[in-house]
Amino acid sequence: MNGKLAPFLILSAAILWGTTGTAQTFAPESAHPVAIGAARLAVGGVFLMILVFLTGGLSLKNWPLRATFLAALSMALFQPLFFTAVTITGVAIGTVVAIGSAPVLSGFLEWLFLKRRPSRIWWSSTFLSILGCLMLFLNKDSVVVDPIGVFMALGAGLSFAVYAIVSRDLVGKFPSLSIVAVVFTLSAVFLAPFLLVFEMAWIADVRGWSIVLYLGVMTTGVAYFLFGKGLTYVSSSTAVTLALAEPLTAAIFGVFLLGENLNATSWIGMFLLMLGIGLLIGASRGNETKGTGSSARLSFKG
């Protein structure tokens, strides 16, 4: 695959993630968001495993168990942390803190563990994107800043950043499809208890299983496969910043499918988000080729 297409693979993943909120609005009212998240991972894991076996099977020889466990745990933690944050402190604050903190935390982790300093273009792009995200969401009449909710959202952002940086290491050594299949299957096992805690009768409804099927196959299986494929060619910090296209997509879907109204501040925020992402795509296509950062990888043997 041409490395110049990598940013667009990650953007495609982010666009699919951005449809998650809209899709969940069509789920039965009795469906708890955390239960939907757990079911989503279960379906996604099964779907990816089927694809792996259809394309030649899975070889576990010399498989990095420690790194896989860390990636799976990070993704499993992201689900309840994010949904709890949104429940406690609201969609606006929860989304901005979780999604906005992930790129910064990812850049910090790369700097700390990989000794790779983020470029000026990355800082500029990330600043514009996060500012755009803030303007897009923080214009609601009722904004409640709850310390516990903010802490949960930061935990969600850190979980996604860790997943990205560990996955960046894994996809350089194993096929991206095999990586996401194993990681999400294990994540689904971690979240399986939630399927017993929450009432799950809603999944027998046509709307229930169709929404879970869409979320599992498209926003989990396909999206994270594209994200993993893109990670082969770009750094984790760049990938996480590009993933800020998710709230942009969610806002656009909200306007055109759910009839939501955006004020001038939100439209300016959308423009800044697109500008930041555009800058990063230009820099990525010009500077990042296959193998970038291959000499500076985390070591997760075992």
Rank of each mutant, 00 (worst) to 15 (best):
M1V: 12
N2Y: 09
N2W: 13
P7A: 04
L9Q: 12
A13W: 09
W17F: 15
G18M: 08
T19L: 09
T22V: 15
T25A: 09
T25H: 13
A27M: 07
P28G: 12
E29A: 14
P33W: 05
P33H: 11
I36F: 01
A38W: 11
A39T: 11
R40V: 03
G45Q: 10
V46P: 02
V46I: 15
R66E: 09
A71L: 03
P80R: 01
F83R: 05
V86G: 07
G90Y: 05
V91W: 02
A92T: 11
A92L: 02
T95R: 03
V96G: 02
S101E: 04
V104G: 03
G107L: 04
E110A: 02
W111R: 15
L114F: 01
S119C: 05
I121N: 14
W123D: 04
S124R: 02
L131G: 03
C133L: 15
N139V: 07
A156V: 12
Y163V: 13
I165D: 08
L170W: 12
F174W: 06
L177D: 06
I179A: 01
V189L: 14
A204L: 11
W209Y: 14
I211K: 07
V212S: 02
A223P: 04
L226E: 00
G230L: 10
E246F: 03
A251Q: 04
V255P: 01
A264G: 06
W267P: 04
G269H: 01
M270L: 15
F271Y: 13
S284R: 08
T289H: 08
K290C: 03
K290G: 12
T292R: 04
S294A: 12
L298A: 07
L298F: 04
